[in-house]
């Protein structure tokens, strides 16, 4: 008959292992290894966020609950100040967009430019870069123009869109409806 072997101080070893495990786990949690990122999308109505770029465009722009409309006969320029979080705060945008509508009976080309200001590592001067885009919007329909970090290739080198604003040229009978901002948020563990 085989004698039952006892392991000396086994209780202490288990307690020690548990302490190490708890320590390891709390270290991992505190260093954010298990942090969860949730994708978020914020939109803001253009009537609040955008305004005429100069007094000459003011007369033809109507602020409506669902957008800023050009009721004139010529293109009106508007400026939108995008809301966002600094990329270093881990809530930087990975896509920004403007949604537009065409109230006319013919297709319209709407042009917008994203204006970003940033400083590359090692540089001491801010750089302002314009990224112009256009969208053809069918009659009585809507569309959007979006920008992603790769549009800035060779400039910021970062994974997120830096601080930015948008300028749009709204042809007659078109509306800037809202601006959108996609980002990820660290919601903890």
């Amino acid at each position: 008959m085989k004698a039952i072997q006892t392991i000396p101080h086994s209780g202490k070893r288990i307690a020690g292992a548990c302490a190490v495990a708890v320590g390891t786990l709390s270290s991992l949690l505190s260093t954010g290894v298990f942090a969860i990122d949730k994708p978020r999308f914020d939109y803001q109505g253009a009537a609040a966020l955008c305004q005429p770029s100069s007094p000459i465009h003011e007369a033809n722009l109507r602020s409506r609950p669902l957008g800023l409309s050009n009721s004139g006969t010529k293109t009106a320029f508007v400026t939108c100040a995008l809301q966002g979080s600094d990329p270093t705060g881990q809530r930087g945008a990975y896509q920004v967009q403007v949604n537009v509508g065409n109230n006319d009976t013919v297709a319209k080309i709407i042009t917008c430019t994203l204006v970003v200001v940033f400083r590359k590592p090692g540089e001491t001067v801010d750089r302002t870069v314009y990224i112009p885009r256009s969208a053809s919007v069918p009659a009585g329909s809507g569309g959007f123009i979006s920008w992603v970090p790769t549009d800035l290739t060779g400039t910021t080198g970062g994974p997120e869109v830096p601080k930015s604003g948008v300028s749009c040229g709204l042809p007659k009978k078109t509306t800037l409806q809202y601006t959108g901002n996609y980002y990820r948020e660290d919601v903890g563990n």
């Binding site: 430019t113 112009p132 256009s134 800035l152 300028s167």
Partner: peptide, 13 residues
């Protein structure tokens, strides 16, 4: 600013 806004289909940046 207005000019660059209008260059949407022409320039990348």
């Amino acid at each position: 600013n207005f000019f660059l806004t209008g260059t949407g289909g022409i320039l990348a940046q």
